[in-house]
């Protein structure tokens, strides 16, 4: 009798252990992954479960020439918040899922296509340069109203920008251009870690090119 009980308990424990083993690499202690619905599209952000996995290829490099690939300061501009991975996921859940904000991949389309953070929109940094004669249309799409010389950003989207990582100037540059165009700093945030840190944590990557 006692032996049966012990066997049952052991059996249960082993099941629990194997279940736990499937989620051994979690986002946080109490959360394995995040499932978010963005305008009808469901995305899942979890982590690579293979504990032997390592970064290979371009993002394994340590010594890119500076300039241009210099180490960026923590802040991308006065009043612009700098976020980490959990805050990026929270932004997707609270702002992007509700249509109040967008996560912007500032890199050029070819990089975006090769792999980006799930739910991100590609707004290449060059599009936000003052030289783009169509920049006002982007501002309007982001929710600016009124005329270009006096845009009203009160109803504009919250933006979270990132690029390749702490050594990448594309998102800080895009942020500088947004600020210069009058976009309020309170509506802009910066994920400094970018793709470099996102990949380092083994977080889910979306490849728009593969999805067509």
């Amino acid at each position: 009798m006692l032996r049966d009980v012990v066997a049952a308990v052991l059996l249960c424990l082993s099941f629990a252990a194997s279940a736990a083993h499937a989620q051994e690499v979690r986002l946080t202690e109490d959360r394995a992954e995040a499932v978010i619905t963005i305008n009808g599209q469901q995305i899942t952000i979890g982590r690579i479960q293979d504990q032997a996995n390592q970064i290979t290829g371009e993002f394994a490099r340590t010594s890119r020439p500076c300039p241009p690939f210099c180490i960026h300061p923590m802040s991308a501009g006065e009043g612009v918040a700098t976020l980490g991975e959990l805050e990026v996921i929270a932004f997707l859940e609270t702002k992007v899922a509700t249509g109040e904000g967008i996560l912007i991949d500032s890199r050029l389309p070819v990089f975006f296509q090769a792999g980006t953070i799930p739910g991100a929109v590609n707004v290449p940094f060059s599009i936000l340069e003052a030289e783009n004669p169509y920049r006002n249309d982007i501002m309007r799409a982001l929710g600016a109203t009124g005329t270009p010389d006096a845009f009203d950003f009160s109803g504009a989207l919250d933006l979270l920008l990132f690029c390749n990582g702490p050594w990448c100037d594309q998102s800080p540059r895009a942020i500088r251009n947004l600020l210069a165009a009058g976009y309020p700093a309170a509506k802009i945030s910066y994920y400094r870690g970018g793709m470099q840190d996102w990949l380092l944590m083994g977080l889910s990557v979306q490849t728009p090119a593969a999805e067509g």
Partner: peptide, 15 residues
Amino acid sequence: MTANVLSSIRAVTGD
């Protein structure tokens, strides 16, 4: 490029 960005912003915001 701007047209592409505009359509992808619309796809996410649904606006």
